[in-house]
Design a protein around this nucleic acid. Structure first.
Length: 342
DNA sequence: AACGTCGGCAACCGCTCGTGT
DNA sequence: CACACGAGCGGTTGCCGACGT
């Protein structure tokens, strides 16, 4: 008689058997696992049960806001590459992330007027759903900002991957190659692989997105037009790229200059968090006091606040944000009290 | 209380990729 | 080079509980 393989949900005793076997022997070849563990399952079923459920390092339960943001941002960069996304979220499985995306995040983005596939604004939504022209404008700005930023970050990832590949290949080449050989080969490869159009400094795109967000500000009490300059981009040895935008604004009692700088973090410093969204700062800047900046505290306007106003006032120290995330965002503000303005 | 609908999630399916022979 | 096999990945299915009528 041929043993029929069992399918469907796993029973606790089956879990126990599989767990006990793997803890004692390791899984080795998955094909042999069910036989050795005394299970009427196929090896593939055992592997899935282990990787998606039984593995001791799996984190279960509700996704944090930080995790949600990371998923959304990584999805914009990587698409449906769930395993790649999961590698940035410690202790979460690709299956869990995929399910969470399909059941929660996709719908949420759609509600916010963002296409969950392209991460770009849904044009029909901007026209029809948001009847108030102010809402249309707001949605449009947010979507525009997000889209530009994501495109820039996607390019960053592509370019750094390309450079790393080339770097690795060169370091693996035989020692007989002269430096000029390597240089020639490298330049050739870069020329072949890079887009034919000239790519502007990476961080500028992101700053330009911020700039449009900033100068579309709804606050009429301040003027943001003064001393607005983009500063140069630099890339240091750790792979960090940085650019900054300096600008001034005039308030009712103070003259303030500020610098926004965008710095990509080297991979060694990333830990699966997500970058600070600058539109969050500006939303609060518009309505907040100048002291907001001297205290280095601001309110985060979370994406979820679009649907849940109850979590709008979550205060967090900017220092927490700069230590985590794929990209670091920093800002510096220099305030000059000018006794009644300039 | 019974029934229908919906959402969440575990599990499966089929394909691709990498590796060994 | 071709083939077989194992493992991994993304898409899909189906079960089950919650909720509404």
């Amino acid at each position: 008689m041929v043993d029929r393989l069992k399918r469907g949900p796993w029973k606790p005793e089956e879990d126990k058997k599989l767990l006990a076997y793997i803890q004692q022997h390791g899984h080795g070849s998955w094909r042999l696992v069910p036989k050795k563990a005394g299970l009427q399952r196929c090896g593939k079923s055992c592997r899935l049960r282990w990787t998606n459920y039984l593995r001791p390092d799996i984190k279960r339960g509700k996704f944090t806001l930080q995790e949600e943001r990371t998923i959304i941002q990584l999805h914009a960069l990587l698409g449906n590459r769930w395993s790649a996304i999961a590698s940035h979220l410690p202790n979460r499985t690709d299956n869990e992330i995929k399910n969470y995306w399909n059941t929660h995040l996709k719908k949420r983005l759609t509600t916010m007027g963002i296409d969950p596939v392209t991460h770009k604004p849904l044009k029909h939504t901007l026209r029809s759903v948001a009847a108030d022209p102010k809402d249309v404008s707001k949605l449009s700005h947010i979507a525009q900002w997000e889209s530009t930023r994501l495109e820039a970050e996607a390019r960053l990832v592509r370019e750094s991957r390309l450079l790393r590949e080339i770097d690795e290949r060169n370091s693996n080449k035989s020692n007989t190659s002269t430096p000029s050989d390597i240089l020639a080969a490298t330049s050739d490869e870069i020329l072949k692989k890079m887009p034919t159009t000239f790519a502007p400094p990476r961080c500028f795109d992101i700053l330009k997105a911020w700039e449009s967000r900033l100068f579309f500000s709804k606050n009429k009490e301040r003027s943001y037009h003064r001393d607005r300059t983009f500063n140069d981009t630099s890339i240091n040895g750790d792979g960090e790229a940085r650019a900054s935008l300096s600008f001034g604004f005039t308030g009712s009692t103070t003259d303030t200059t500020a610098e926004l700088s965008y710095m990509t973090a080297p991979s060694s410093r990333t830990n699966g968090g997500s970058p600070l969204r600058f539109d969050e700062i500006f939303e609060n800047w518009d309505g907040g006091s100048d002291d907001l900046f001297s205290e280095q505290v601001f309110s985060t306007r979370l994406m979820e606040a679009e649907i849940n106003p109850a979590i709008c006032n979550d205060h967090q120290d900017i220092g927490n944000h700069t230590e985590r995330g794929i990209c670091d965002v920093q800002y510096e503000v220099n305030r000059n009290h000018c006794n009644g303005g300039i």
